[in-house]
């Protein structure tokens, strides 16, 4: 796995410890995360387009939280930014971050797939 800021490996190691080394379960978890993150990103876009700050906040919170679990530090930071915007009762400035979220999602997906293929 290439050196990257996309995934913090200590988070994955932490999860493996929680699962007592059950890599298969970590693999399932990664699948769930990626699928869920895709849905959350769609929700973010919907919220921004509809101008629903609260929906934005909630989806961003989940993305942040889930990304923290998997060590997806980039998505975590982006999720936190969007959550703060939502908390401010607005969606202003959020649209700008959506592209970055989607790009980062692509990187995270690639990184985690690589982990799945090479290590789990």
């Amino acid at each position: 796995m290439p050196e990257s800021k996309t995934i913090d490996r200590t988070a994955l190691d932490n999860l493996l410890t929680l699962f007592r080394g059950d890599a298969a379960f970590l693999g399932q978890l990664i699948d769930t995360y990626l699928a869920d993150a895709a849905n959350l990103i769609a929700s973010l876009r919907g919220a921004v387009e509809a101008g629903h700050a609260d929906d934005l906040r909630r989806a961003a919170h989940s993305l942040k939280s889930n990304s923290a679990n998997l060590g997806a530090v980039g998505l975590l930071a982006l999720g936190r930014e969007l959550e703060e915007i939502g908390k401010g009762g607005t969606v202003n400035g959020a649209a700008d971050r959506l592209a970055a979220v989607e790009a980062e999602y692509e990187r995270v997906t690639a990184a985690l797939r690589a982990v799945q293929e090479n290590e789990l």
């Binding site: 929680l18 379960f25 769930t32 679990n69």
Partner: peptide, 13 residues
């Protein structure tokens, strides 16, 4: 759901 998965599994372990 992700949190639940992690916790259920970790606690079971």
């Amino acid at each position: 759901v992700l949190n639940r998965m992690v916790l259920v599994r970790a606690l079971a372990e």
